[in-house]
């Protein structure tokens, strides 16, 4: 398995990286963990003539807590780090759980959240997790930057809003309100090293420990060309009192949002049926998590 030839760049600052990116335009790709890009290059699916590495760029691989109101995750933070970070696990649970299910440990130690989002595979683990947390993506280019909601980011398999001379530098996630809980469930055939047949991320917010649902977010992966939100199911849940029955009804509504395909991993019919089951399960889990919400120790 040989890699095609390319020039490698290791800029020391973000500015340098962005300048290189704008100079090379479509001929360059950003490399962070490389667990997806290098595979596609070995398979000759991609042949960039330049790779721009993020490894020397300061602070692009750190998680920064923003005083109580949120967290900023550098694009080069690895899945391994996300899955072991206590703050992420406690407050941004779907991201932590999804990161823990990505690939296997050796992959998680290299794969980054930025790569997982930008590659825009329909079955990606972190995309639905970021979607239920309403993450906002900071895209930079040489001259300017913009913030794009992750919910608008995906356009198709491998396609996003990102321009060739733009780089995803960080992901900002607002801290969910008190009495929020999250879940992430992935269905594959093995217990690990899997690409999802279906995955579901959920964030549920209660008014109080026993109170009705004040907010619900459900995102599904591998069921359409991009990960999708199940808006109808979300709306159905808001204002209602949580129960297993309610969650199973929401699951049935969730199926309506999806247009899964039949491929060698699973048929459309089975995927649709599993959306229902897994959505309802994820809602139950998120509810359990929400009920046990605790203020963070100071």
């Amino acid at each position: 398995m040989l890699l095609p030839k390319f020039d490698y760049h290791e800029p020391a600052t973000l500015e340098d990286a962005l300048r290189l990116l704008s100079e090379m335009g479509g001929n360059a790709r950003i490399v962070a963990g490389g667990t997806d890009l290098l595979v596609r290059m070995k398979l000759k699916v991609e042949k960039p003539s330049h790779l721009i590495s993020l490894r020397k760029i300061p602070r692009i691989n750190v998680i920064i807590q923003r005083e109580n109101h949120g967290v900023s995750i550098g694009a080069a933070v690895t899945a391994g780090e996300l899955s072991t970070n206590e703050l992420i696990m406690e407050r941004f649970t779907p991201i932590g759980l999804a990161a823990a299910r990505l690939g296997a440990p050796g992959i998680r130690n290299r794969a980054t959240i930025g790569g997982n989002l930008v590659n825009a595979r329909p079955a990606a683990d972190l995309s639905p997790a970021c979607m239920v947390l309403n993450a906002s993506l900071k895209l930079k280019r040489s001259k300017n930057e913009r913030e794009v909601p992750v919910n608008d980011f995906f356009r198709g398999p491998g396609e996003t809003l990102i321009e060739p001379n733009e780089m995803l530098v960080s992901i900002f996630v607002e801290t969910p309100p008190p009495w929020s809980g999250g879940a992430y469930i992935k269905l594959g055939s093995r217990k690990t090293l899997e690409i999802s047949m279906v995955n579901v991320a959920v964030l549920l917010t209660l008014q109080s420990q026993n109170g009705p649902i004040v907010d619900a977010k459900i995102a599904l992966g591998a069921v359409a060309p991009t990960p999708v939100r199940a808006f109808a199911a979300e709306e159905f849940l808001i204002g209602r009192q949580p129960s297993a029955k309610l969650f199973s009804e929401a699951g049935a509504i969730g199926v309506g949002m999806c247009e899964p395909i039949t491929d060698h991993r699973g048929t459309m019919e089975y995927r649709c049926l599993m959306i229902e089951t897994l959505t309802s399960r994820a809602l139950n889990q998120a509810y359990q998590d929400a009920m046990t919400w605790k203020p963070l120790p100071v």
Binding site: R190, K191, T192, L193, I195, H264
Partner: peptide
């Protein structure tokens, strides 16, 4: 062959 890799041809892992 659609799945000529150990990612897509699935043999048991330690967790299976």
């Amino acid at each position: 062959v659609l799945n000529p890799s150990l990612g897509e041809y699935k043999i048991p892992t330690a967790l299976d």
